[in-house]
Amino acid sequence: MNFAPEPALPLAWPVDLSPDRLAITEANRAAAAWLASPGLWPVPVTLVVGPAGSGKTHLARWFAARSPARVIETADREDPESLFHAWNAATRQAPLLLTSQLIPRDWRHGLPDLASRLAATPLVKLGEPDDELLTAVLGKLFAERGVRVGDDLIRWLVVRIERSLVAAQAVVAALDAAALARRRAITIPLAREVVDGQGEFGF
């Protein structure tokens, strides 16, 4: 029986960022170790900076699940006065975690008192996910769906999809949907059809 080609999938997939799904590898191990010990921070605030898809949100949720912390994402877009008061309200018992794609000197808040607070805030930098992290995330995502795939498929995906955790979530969801629709196993030929047909994966 022949199956008609699947229509293009939507650009946005629901992304599960549950804390217990965080994969820790060399790419984010130092950041996770720092966030795991807020009592050792010089001030009760930390800023995590990294490009889109580098895992800032997932780390932030992992951190918040481990401590009674407040998290402010995309802090560079926050109202400066509100951010200033949030910084001042942070304590050892209730630390504050900020995330941003920009380092503080590129924030356009125009508030000197906030600038001085940010200058005293420890900065944790995340880069794009490396091969080890993408491999671990892809393997975990397939396993959680009950899908068995070969290591060769994961290696093929790692060097072809956009280097972001959101892209990893998206491509696994797309492959699972395509395999179910076409009643095929998830193999490199199927992955080639899906990835080549969906430009948002960053081939």
Score class of each variant (00 low, 15 high):
residue 164 S to Q: 05
residue 191 A to N: 05
residue 78 E to P: 03
residue 149 V to H: 00
residue 31 A to H: 00
residue 31 A to I: 04
residue 67 S to I: 07
residue 166 V to S: 10
residue 44 P to W: 03
residue 65 A to K: 03
residue 169 Q to W: 08
residue 62 W to V: 08
residue 158 V to F: 02
residue 5 P to I: 07
residue 87 W to Y: 04
residue 178 A to C: 11
residue 16 D to L: 09
residue 203 F to T: 15
residue 150 G to W: 01
residue 64 A to S: 02
residue 126 L to E: 05
residue 70 R to Y: 11
residue 22 L to W: 08
residue 111 L to D: 07
residue 137 V to M: 06
residue 152 D to K: 06
residue 57 T to S: 15
residue 192 R to F: 11
residue 24 I to V: 14
residue 134 L to V: 07
residue 50 G to R: 02
residue 95 P to V: 09
residue 175 L to P: 00
residue 2 N to C: 14
residue 144 E to R: 15
residue 72 I to T: 09
residue 145 R to V: 09
residue 178 A to N: 10
residue 76 D to Y: 03
residue 151 D to A: 15
residue 145 R to Y: 04
residue 82 S to W: 11
residue 150 G to R: 01
residue 122 P to F: 06
residue 133 L to V: 07
residue 118 L to S: 08
residue 66 R to N: 06
residue 191 A to M: 06
residue 106 D to W: 02
residue 107 W to N: 04
residue 92 R to N: 14
residue 87 W to H: 06
residue 4 A to Q: 13
residue 185 A to I: 10
residue 98 L to G: 04
residue 175 L to W: 00
residue 162 E to Y: 01
residue 53 G to K: 01
residue 70 R to A: 13
residue 152 D to A: 11
residue 35 L to C: 01
residue 63 F to H: 05
residue 162 E to Q: 11
residue 35 L to P: 00
residue 150 G to L: 00
residue 91 T to S: 15
residue 38 P to H: 02
residue 72 I to D: 05
residue 163 R to G: 10
residue 161 I to Q: 01
residue 38 P to L: 05
residue 196 D to N: 13
residue 100 S to K: 01
residue 142 F to Q: 08
residue 161 I to D: 00
residue 54 S to L: 09
residue 3 F to L: 15
residue 71 V to Q: 06
residue 104 P to W: 06
residue 152 D to I: 11
residue 140 K to R: 15
residue 85 H to K: 13
residue 59 L to A: 01
residue 41 W to P: 07
residue 46 T to I: 11
residue 93 Q to T: 14
residue 3 F to K: 14
residue 102 L to M: 10
residue 49 V to R: 00
residue 143 A to E: 14
residue 32 A to G: 00
residue 39 G to L: 09
residue 35 L to Y: 00
residue 60 A to M: 06
residue 115 A to N: 12
residue 59 L to T: 00
residue 196 D to G: 15
residue 156 W to K: 03
residue 50 G to E: 02
residue 185 A to F: 12
residue 77 R to I: 13
residue 29 R to K: 08
residue 84 F to K: 05
residue 81 E to T: 13
residue 77 R to K: 12
residue 144 E to M: 12
residue 155 R to P: 03
residue 174 A to R: 04
residue 127 G to M: 10
residue 94 A to V: 10
residue 65 A to Q: 05
residue 160 R to A: 08
residue 199 G to L: 12
residue 160 R to N: 10
residue 145 R to A: 12
residue 171 V to L: 09
residue 179 A to T: 12
residue 160 R to V: 13
residue 171 V to F: 07
residue 4 A to V: 13
residue 78 E to H: 12
residue 107 W to M: 10
residue 137 V to E: 03
residue 27 A to P: 03
residue 41 W to S: 12
residue 35 L to N: 00
residue 97 L to C: 04
residue 192 R to S: 13
residue 29 R to T: 05
residue 111 L to C: 11
residue 68 P to S: 12
residue 79 D to W: 10
residue 154 I to E: 10
residue 53 G to H: 01
residue 161 I to E: 01
residue 119 A to G: 15
